[in-house]
Write a protein that binds this DNA or RNA. Sequence first.
DNA 1: ATAATCAATAAGTATGAATTATCAAATAGA
DNA 2: TCTATTTGATAATTCATACTTATTGATTAT
Lengths: 295, 295
Amino acid sequence: MNYQIELRHFIYFLAVAEELHYRKAAEKLFISQPGLSTQIKQMEEILGTQLFVRDKKKVSLTPAGEFLKKEVEFILNHLDQTKKQVKLIGDGQLGEVRIGFLGSAMQNVVPNLLLGLKEKYPTVHTTLEELSNRAQINAILADRLDLGFVRLSRVPKGLDVKPVFEDTFSLVLPEGHPLDAKHFKNINQVANEDFILFSQDYSPMYYDTVLSICEDSGFVPNVSHKSVHAQTIFKLVENKLGIAIVPTTLQHGFQMKVKFIEMKKIKQRAVLSMVWKTDNRNPALQKCMDLLQKL
Amino acid sequence: MNYQIELRHFIYFLAVAEELHYRKAAEKLFISQPGLSTQIKQMEEILGTQLFVRDKKKVSLTPAGEFLKKEVEFILNHLDQTKKQVKLIGDGQLGEVRIGFLGSAMQNVVPNLLLGLKEKYPTVHTTLEELSNRAQINAILADRLDLGFVRLSRVPKGLDVKPVFEDTFSLVLPEGHPLDAKHFKNINQVANEDFILFSQDYSPMYYDTVLSICEDSGFVPNVSHKSVHAQTIFKLVENKLGIAIVPTTLQHGFQMKVKFIEMKKIKQRAVLSMVWKTDNRNPALQKCMDLLQKL
DNA sequence: ATAATCAATAAGTATGAATTATCAAATAGA
DNA sequence: TCTATTTGATAATTCATACTTATTGATTAT
């Protein structure tokens, strides 16, 4: 009496609606004809409407049945799609990865990741957001982000980090500056210049590293300006308001009147790491990390 | 092992996905917690994907589960809509009636039906087609039409007829004709005129009736022209090519230089009947016929 | 007439969705 | 640290019901 419609009913209904013949429909479904009859009847009771007209020797659909047929076709179809997609998402073949990154990661790591995804897992999509180290960490902790690209060595408990790209540092000088790569020996050649650096709390690790580079050469830099954007830093250098030390990859992608001197000999490296929540189960994230191993 | 997803699974899944708590979800569903657990587990097996992460003390959705949740919400919603609509169609509250009619039915019967439908069953829609008696009968037999308005007394086996409107006949005379309503006594006053009638095979019953009217007055009409359109007949009368005898309702709806003399005293009536297939199960048709009873 | 074919009905079976009872793991409170 | 409480998962059992086979009644075909 108080039954509930099930997908079984729909499948049975569709078979009868297609065959318009109970025995044939039952054969197709590999069940017995009486079983099919009772199930259809039950379905009609649940819906409170006749779906088939069983007239002398012929079965036909009522208008309500005709309508239901279309709907059932749609629903079963949609369901099939859904099942496939759920499986794909579960296998990490399909899904969304929410990625945060520092601007400097956009020079090579993030584009390479996106190209790799497009090639190997074209159905894995991404949302991208340029964020500071801190903002990324917070977003990952709050489950608003799956993957971050940061310049940090230590991260809060519950997160994992892994270096994905090591970069040298470069001196950034205004185009007309007397020093050039040929005559560059050591950073203390510019020890008396004003320095323009990324803000300490935008990227503490970078800041510390730059300070340690100078320290290694025996001086404390005079930091005249700080900024969170490479664009701004370069603009200030261009206007001779100081010189900068930045990860070398930032050489590309900007049209500025500045010159880069890559400091290969100094031991410090600008390390870009990926960060993710240890217990993140997004399978598409696994695919991303697999790809990043190979980059 | 070889189970099949059922709607039950979806309903259970949604409860857990909403509560993120098996016991609470089970309570909401009025089933036991172990039953719910096994059903969800079975569902995961069928789909081949984990849907929930049961971590220490907390339940959460996997990305696949997150995706499925949205889909299940959509599907269950859609299904609910469908169930309601099927019921409405079955009750004839919602649906379509395909109506055929003779031009003369458009004077009052069909418009009144449409107004009645609009008022009482605004969700019952119609398709309308002006057709001859014969064309309507054929269309109804071939299930291309639900309801016809004809002037026939006998219809093929399998169809039912029922009079819906009785009309007197009127003489149609050119405006300048010497006879008028005041001086009209009997049709044999125009026995010597030429007659313009609807074609015999457009409406045999009409034709026979008109002949019997003349016969009762003791003459055989001289039929000079026949047509299937009232418009044409009136135009011919207007041009003094003859006079006509037509159902009185045709008086309205035409702008012609002709005058009508209603012959109330003659016993013959122009009967408009509705026709339908005896075994037509369109519930919206029933609503139409109910309305037509009351007109 | 007889046989054949249809869906519906009746009665019995067996699958599996439910239940209750219990467990193992984790947390919270003392 | 121990206990009490809470979580979801398991195990064993019960019970609902979707199935089966056997049959009927109605209709059509030969």
